[in-house]
Design a protein around this nucleic acid. Sequence first.
RNA 1: GCGGAUGGCCGGACGGCCGCGAAGGCGACUUCGAGGAAAGUCCGGACUCCAGGGAGAAAUGGCGGCGGGUAACGCCCGCCCGGGGCAACCCGAGGGAAAGCGCCACAGAAAUCAGACCGCCCGCGGCUCCGGUCGCGGGCAAGGGUGAAACGGUGGGGUAAGAGCCCACCGCGCUGCCGGCAACGGGAGCGGCACGGCAAGCCCCGCCAGGAGCAAGGCCAAAUAGGGAUCGCGCGGGGCUCCGGCCCCAGGGCCUCUCCCGCCCGAGCGGUCCGGGUUGGCUGCUCGAGCCUGCCGGCGACGGCAGGCCCAGACGAAUGGCCGUCGGCGCCCUGCAAAGGGCGUCACAGAAUCCGGCUUACAGGCCAUCCGCGCGC
Length: 129
Amino acid sequence: MRAAAPHPGPEGPVSVLTRRAEFLAAARAFRQGKPGFALQGRPRGPGEAPEGIRVGFTCSRKVGNAVARNRAKRRLRAVAREVLPGEGRAGWDYVLIGRPGETAARDFAALCADLRAALASVHAKAAAR
RNA sequence: GCGGAUGGCCGGACGGCCGCGAAGGCGACUUCGAGGAAAGUCCGGACUCCAGGGAGAAAUGGCGGCGGGUAACGCCCGCCCGGGGCAACCCGAGGGAAAGCGCCACAGAAAUCAGACCGCCCGCGGCUCCGGUCGCGGGCAAGGGUGAAACGGUGGGGUAAGAGCCCACCGCGCUGCCGGCAACGGGAGCGGCACGGCAAGCCCCGCCAGGAGCAAGGCCAAAUAGGGAUCGCGCGGGGCUCCGGCCCCAGGGCCUCUCCCGCCCGAGCGGUCCGGGUUGGCUGCUCGAGCCUGCCGGCGACGGCAGGCCCAGACGAAUGGCCGUCGGCGCCCUGCAAAGGGCGUCACAGAAUCCGGCUUACAGGCCAUCCGCGCGC
């Protein structure tokens, strides 16, 4: 998954966050809550890889046992694959955070709509800064 | 048919579109990709590193009927004993209480080499309505009552009343006999009853066990200094010499202790602490006490042989997302019924070095064997 993203959208390939420091940096930047999940977004600074969209997923113990956490992560991954290549911005890191119950139960189309709205909101916050 | 006991199995199926991980291929692409518990991390191992090897001891922890299976086990199988059930079958930390210490509450007269409350019997005396009753002395422990448990139980003889006082059976102890590999079982003789429970209290006996864990460990690349503090022991002797050293002996060090062996140091060695570093990649990493089928041995756990098969290896962590058809279950509707339709629902749970077990969780369903009762033949 780290390797090739065979789904290049207008903003370039999507790759995955793997380092703890990158997650912490995203958490300090912009965020937007939604019923099915919460979104954190951060434009990468100078000195970091400038190309492509990167995304990470977080489901804490609060989401449930291992089965529930895996399911929530997989649905978020499917949503990200659907939306990010078109709506995400190159040079940004995004982190999707799962919620107990809702992430697994909410309708898939609604989750996609949530992500589009959350992306617009985060990008607007960055522009206003 | 109803009720029950035991053992085992499955735990959704098929397809479409878009994806993920691994292996192979120049490529198009092909193949493979979660569980019975992957879980809890409770036991047992393999593997790796650390401690120099062996023997013994101590400490600590674990195990505990007997025999067998296994790499091993606290697991499994068979059997024995005790308890429960009409039965199939189930349950049992099931060694030692005449090595010692300790504890047995409450109740009760008395709780361990105990005791006489009510009571039973005899004698004497008083009273008497002649049935008894009271007092004193003596004998006794059958009956009542307490308790988890009362110097063994039941029955008979015996006696003033009683008592293993005597007898039979049972129990207990001792001795030898027979059956069994053994746990143990059977019957015989003797004793005349004396030796209560708790060892998931200490303890004793037998057996087992070094420590840490795949974030083990190894390689590469960066990075770092070949540091500092402190403590213990010791800073001796002899020989050879080409003057660089070499050899021998004291002495010191190396598993908690002792002994033996071995190794190292021999003017340093060893212990502890501080400082520095603790990231990235590769490897370990999946062919194994492996799985399937058949035959043979065994009551069985299991073992042997032959043939076939390759069956996840991720690391912010793949095995998915969205649909369709079918199926199971529940409810409702139509219908005499067969059947049809609608809605809802489909558990517990996700590999992380790998095996063998145990334990716990689990919607729904299936199979086999056995027992009891009822009915039919």
